[in-house]
Design a protein around this nucleic acid. Structure first.
Lengths: 259, 259
DNA sequence: CGTGAAGTTGATATCTGTCAAGCTACGTGG
DNA sequence: CCACGTAGCTTGACAGATATCAACTTCACG
């Protein structure tokens, strides 16, 4: 899965990956899943592919607002998102919450639980969702059998580490508008890789959740949206966002070029 | 390796791990390394242990200020720190640098390179260091043979993800003094797990590097140190720090108790 | 013992947070 | 089908935390 991550831009560049999502797909097996290229390694023959179908034990539906897992839950499985949109967040006892990521179809959540066998964050569905449940013991078993799968699992974890590095850069070094610009470009880029528009998106999260992710208050998020809108860079209407000038958005956090 | 990570505190609690570091140790094999419990899984018999010695291909010395690897380098190996102290950092073309972590003996660096086969950050030695070079292909081979090693590798990567989650919480939700307090407690805790003092430490990094990690400017770091010092919570003399009142330090970022 | 890097401290500027008011959109129930 | 209520969003005024700029001090190293 040729993927390069531009730390500067906080944008992932997927190659050979432009998958239309047909919500009508019925088959349970990975081998027939149209998200396969996002979740699973490629390069298997049909026989091996069938064996790999075992990775997914079951499917699970999660209603909007419900948690797939939460802090303290026993870790048993990774989850591949089939449909829907999630946020993961950690929180302190005094109620401060930090959104650590937003995840969409084809992305894997639950990696936080491996180290202690307990989840250390909450995964909340931001819209009705369906996930593939992949018992981690099974993932490990099959990984030992299939080096390609093993490598794939390692890449997924490494990608998450690198993504978090880029979020640290955002939080530590960038200013409010730079953060929001990077965030929007990252979102639209990931959506585009899934067959959606390069320039339009509907946010699945509130201003407050965006702010929590980007380390700023909801009012600051709102102001930044308004500023971009005033400058003609984007069009915003509540959660609908249209990017009118992608280059201008890129320039906000990267005065020069962004590969 | 019983490890729990308190997100609130940004403190890792290691269990059964209090290893004095004897710089005189000569043996090359993991099986004879006194850092084994930090780097390697436990529970192997002597025969398996010998096979696992193959994980480490060579040792490599890195002089203070030199890079173990840098952004864009081809990824081949993970590195286990034997002696010395590293920082990892990412940077943008316009020169902004974000320190993403500080690593000490027994910790593993290089995980960022797995996803793209290229390193996406720099690893700089903050003091003369020696690392064990673990070719990743060999790690993967042996992981397929030894489930305990496989699990161990997964835990190391998951731990890094969880650590970065807690840094995101620091950067996104905490104020300057809270960040520094959490940072000091985390450092001293990790040093203590390696047989050093619970209350004294010598910083291996500059104020600027601390600031970069914590998302603040060096002057702000310095002021926070001075404030803690004025309040009698710590004693500071340049890079020497003595924690006089650990509870007060904990209270700064956690008004109640911190487990 | 001199020189420069690192660290400290003060004065001021700037960005983002806070508080408050009003607006918009959406869902619910009459 | 409309009215109402609420949650989410926007905007303004002001406050506060941290950044910036600058001067000075300390320490490490040659």
């Amino acid at each position: 899965m040729g993927l390069a991550l531009c730390l500067r831009c906080h944008i992932e560049f997927y190659q050979n990956m432009n998958l239309a999502i047909t919500p009508e797909s019925v088959k349970v097996a990975c081998s027939n899943c149209n998200l396969r290229e996002l979740c699973m390694p490629t390069g298997f023959n049909t026989d091996d592919m069938k064996k790999l179908d075992e990775v997914v034990a079951t499917r699970r539906r999660v209603k909007q607002g419900d948690m797939l897992f939460s802090n303290g839950d026993v870790f048993t499985s990774l989850y591949a998102i089939r449909t829907g949109f999630f946020k993961t967040c950690v929180s302190t006892e005094d109620g401060r919450e930090q959104v650590t990521g937003f995840q969409m179809a084809g992305e894997i959540i639950g990696l936080d639980g491996i180290v202690t066998d307990l989840h250390s964050c909450n995964a909340v569905a931001l819209e009705d969702a369906e996930v593939c449940v992949m018992p981690f013991a099974k993932v490990e078993d099959l990984s030992r059998e299939f080096p390609l799968l093993q490598r794939h699992v390692h890449k997924i974890m490494s990608r998450e580490i690198v993504r978090e590095n880029s979020v640290m850069m955002l939080l530590g070094n960038m200013r409010a508008e730079e953060r929001l610009a990077a965030f929007l470009l990252n979102l639209v880029q990931r959506l585009h890789a899934r067959g959606f528009s390069q320039s339009e998106l509907t946010l699945r999260m509130s201003r407050e959740e965006i702010g929590s992710y980007l380390g700023m208050k909801l009012e600051t998020v709102s102001r930044a949206f308004s500023k971009f809108s005033d400058e003609g860079i984007i069009e915003v209407k509540q959660r609908y966002v249209r990017i009118l000038n992608s280059d201008a958005l890129k320039k906000i956090f990267n005065p020069e070029t962004c590969s």
